[in-house]
Design a protein around this nucleic acid. Structure first.
Length: 156
DNA sequence: GTTCTTACA
DNA sequence: TGTAAGTA
């Protein structure tokens, strides 16, 4: 695999462990009051990390921040809370699909004619042709189909 | 000082 | 949703 799991794991750690905020911080960051944050949580719109034992203060992760920030944006645009939540869910679902497709479609980067191109996997059902993509000076995406196996050299 | 829950304007 | 009270 061209992209080892390392990058993904780092991002995951970044989001879940390093970026943790208390309710006051999240409120300041997003412009949403602590009252609202507690209310939204009571409604199941957002969630904080599990509070263990004596831990009475809520702790939010990066995911919660993203969700709150998105809802806040829609609220500012005039949506009701219900509408803002709906829009946010649609937005996040769209991004999830885009992310999943790209994550699975992009196999890596290889050298073709000594130039780096994106390996997009097999082009046909027979798996005799490989699809590659590159981009030219005008940001125009160019596709190339090559016989497989090719002499493309992985530059992982 | 901050956060929590509950209650009321 | 803001604010106040009384805690932890």
């Amino acid at each position: 695999m061209a992209f080892s799991g390392e990058h993904h794991l780092r991002m995951k750690a970044l989001a879940s462990e390093l970026f943790q905020f208390r309710i006051g911080e999240l409120a300041t960051m997003t412009g949403v009051s602590t009252r609202q944050l507690r209310y939204w949580e009571s409604k199941g719109i957002i969630s904080s990390l599990e509070r263990e034992g004596e831990q009475d203060a809520r702790v939010y992760n990066y995911t919660a921040y993203v969700t709150v920030a998105a809802i806040k944006e829609f609220l500012d645009d005039g949506y009701t809370l219900k509408g803002a939540v709906k829009k946010t869910k649609e937005y996040q679902e769209n991004w999830r699909v885009l992310h999943d497709v790209m994550h699975n479609a992009v196999k890596g980067v290889v050298l073709l004619d000594n130039k780096p191109v994106v390996d997009l996997g097999f082009f046909n059902e027979d798996e005799t042709q490989r699809l590659y993509a590159t981009i030219d000076k005008n940001n125009q995406v160019k596709y190339l189909v090559q016989a497989w196996p090719s002499d493309a050299k992985s530059i992982e």
